[in-house]
Nucleic acid binder design. Structure first.
Lengths: 235, 235
DNA sequence: ATGGGAAAGATTGCATACCAATCTCAAAAG
DNA sequence: CTTTTGAGATTGGTATGCAATCTTTCCCAT
């Protein structure tokens, strides 16, 4: 068992990624302490981790809230993803073995099936995961961790907008990126990575999605049940 | 004033970057609490921040230590810098105004003077800072923060080895990177960024530098004096 | 003497209790 | 209707205690 605060921050992270905790949601220390049945000190530690990850914003003497990225910040996150993946592309091209390319192609296949079956939820996840795999192939855990953090943050953005993706086009992008990289046409691949992310952002009909968010207790209930039986599971 | 634990983590970060606290150094909670005159709870929070930043490693029930990156991790950090800057290069080329290019050239000038004056300490700092400026010109605070974190971690590596840089070559690299980017020759610039970082790593004569490290109290004394008079400054 | 093991001591991880500073929000005053 | 005020809630931080674990030291058997 790791640190209690580490576990808790991971659980809250999951809840944010799954959009059970949405941007702006107040994360009261006492409420979280009750939910997880730990002391406030541990909750504070978890909140610090989350704040360092950018998922939570702490305002002095006001408390912690699920981050609500500004429009500018949203752009910066996607540009950061672009740059990181462009760098990965530069390293991957010409240095990756057949196994790597086929792993990527296999993944595109999977997402293709998900789209055909109309499983948008899954297609969405797989769409993100393509980029994760791409970065994983760089075999650099430092880059992987930075990239994963950015991906986590994009979940915040999805909570803020109605996403309407052109899966067909995005899938084709993935496919073409693989082809270009394998062919050693790095510059063209990097250009496509750029426009690809711009198309993803375009898929966000940037409007205030004032979706009602659940209470902290409600949002976290399935997770705490998962890990450890809470004291008073008033389901 | 921000959080106490935030301040403290920043002070410790400075001490690590300035190589007053070297890899492997034990960061005892009580010792730090005494030095900064705060409770252990605050110190723990600071240590969590530092651990998230990669500068400190916490081992359960053993305590926190200044991180001692493995050889592999060192490589990964420099490769991560490479990829990030390659991505920045892709974004910068053709989109940066004259002001930006001249800022970079001015900086190279500064470092050139430092080298001529034999001020290795300064030349070293400016050498790192060139890359910081490059990334800053991307005008992306997310990327900047990730890059800054990597730069901080390179300080750990400098503590571990004897660095013997060929400043002349490295400076020429910087100069040429600017030229290539301004000329729109991105691929060539990215290639040079790669070899540049490889040359930096080559400058590390990877040997266990078992330099004697100071005590925590000793190492942090000048910083705490800076911020707040400690209780018992037994210099 | 020397390697292994047990006991003592130190440190971490966490809980509880407490307090000052600050924010929130609603009621009272103008 | 706006401003002020004050009670209550929340945060940031301290102090203390305790169980679990790690470290060190000392003792004993080989």
């Amino acid at each position: 068992m790791g640190n209690r605060s580490d576990e808790i921050s991971k659980v809250i992270t999951r809840a944010i990624i799954n959009r059970r905790l949405t941007p702006g949601c107040k994360l009261s220390e006492q409420a979280l302490a009750d939910v997880f049945n730990v002391s406030r000190a541990v909750v504070r530690q978890a909140l610090i981790r989350l704040a360092d990850d950018g998922l939570v914003t702490v305002e002095r003497h006001r408390g912690a809230f699920v981050s609500r990225p500004s429009h500018r910040e949203a752009m910066e996150i996607y540009d950061a993803l672009t740059m990181l993946e462009q760098g990965v592309a530069a390293q991957l091209s010409g240095r990756l073995d057949q196994r790597g390319w086929s792993e990527l192609r296999h993944h595109v296949e999977l997402q293709h099936k998900a789209v055909e079956e109309g499983n948008d939820e899954l297609a969405d996840q797989l769409g993100s995961h393509f980029h994760v795999i791409l970065v994983k192939l760089s075999r650099n855990t430092v880059v992987q961790e930075m990239h994963a953090q950015l991906i986590r943050r994009t979940a915040l953005l999805r909570s803020l907008v109605d996403s309407r993706f052109d899966y067909c086009g995005l899938l084709h992008d993935h496919s073409e990126i693989i082809d270009l990289l394998e062919a050693g046409r790095v510059a063209k691949a990097q250009e496509l990575i750029d426009t690809h992310h711009r198309n993803v952002v375009k898929g966000y009909l940037m409007g205030e999605n004032t979706e009602q968010s659940m209470s902290v207790h409600e949002a976290l209930e399935p997770y705490v049940n998962d890990a450890k039986t809470p004291v008073n599971a008033t389901s």
